[in-house]
Design a binder for these strands. Structure first.
Ligand code: MN
Ligand code: MN
Ligand code: ZN
Ligand code: ZN
Lengths: 126, 126
DNA sequence: ACCTTATTGAGAAGTCTTTTCAATAACGCT
DNA sequence: AGCGTTATTGAAAAGACTTCTCAATAAGGT
């Protein structure tokens, strides 16, 4: 059975305090800076579990690094993210969903999933 | 000045023969299998250069690996790709471009770029 | 042919992530 | 509260992908 540990709680807290998407390493660094002695491996494990349970969103940065965020929206949605500070806006995109489905159907692709994210500079970082 | 080498030509040839998107490592493996003694580093260098010159498209797989393809379309476009065999369909997405711009503007984001790719199983792999 | 220097091959190194395994601690039970 | 089971942890090793280093090679202009 799944156990509730201090470490997992700390990861949740730290992730919630983060402004936007953060990497596992950045999160671990900030936790360490705050006095925690949690290991990097445990941060990775916690984030991976949370993503699997749907409590946390993840996406690949343009550099191929996994970033994580405790999103407020529950359902499927997309992101507009500042590539400088990580600030993130959650956006619904019904037209995208339709478009994606239509394209897949048109070319007889099944079991489809789409990656749709927008990266830019927020007004503060611009 | 840029020099034309046998190795670069071989990479172009191998990439063109590939059905869809392939990783640098897969491409190198297939070239090696075909008798070439080109080094992996050179394959990476060639692909990186070609992407920079706009002759080759690249995208991040869902696992975070860089994949490459010699696309037929010149301009900006997106991809519907089989996650099993790499087979790829190039798709225009005017509505997506508009939508992307609109979202960025609405939230005062500048210097935006979007990642829009659809992954699934092609009819053969399904 | 010769010279200059961009390019190559081979391996080392870098970065992100997962795995291993012995030690620890969460939680159900008494 | 005490106990036993076993999920979880920390630390280090390993794995995967990519880039870098540097001496040797070869492209291409003269
Ligand atoms: Mn989200
Ligand atoms: Mn393309
Ligand atoms: Zn910003
Ligand atoms: Zn396929």
């Amino acid at each position: 059975m799944k156990r509730q540990t201090k470490q997992r709680d700390l990861v949740v807290t730290a992730l919630t305090k983060a402004r936007g998407f953060v990497s596992a390493q950045a999160l671990h660094a900030s936790m360490t800076h705050s006095g925690s002695t949690i290991s990097l491996a445990t941060v990775y494990r916690a984030l991976t579990d949370m993503v699997g349970e749907g409590d946390v969103d993840s996406l690949l940065s343009l550099e191929g690094e996994n970033l994580y965020r405790a999103c407020s929206s529950n359902g499927h949605h997309h992101h507009l993210m500042c590539r400088e500070c990580g600030a993130t806006v959650e956006i619904d995109a019904k037209p995208i969903e339709e478009w994606s489905r239509a394209q897949a159907a048109a070319y007889n692709f099944t079991d489809v999933e789409h990656v749709v994210d927008i990266f830019g500079l927020c007004s503060q970082c611009a």
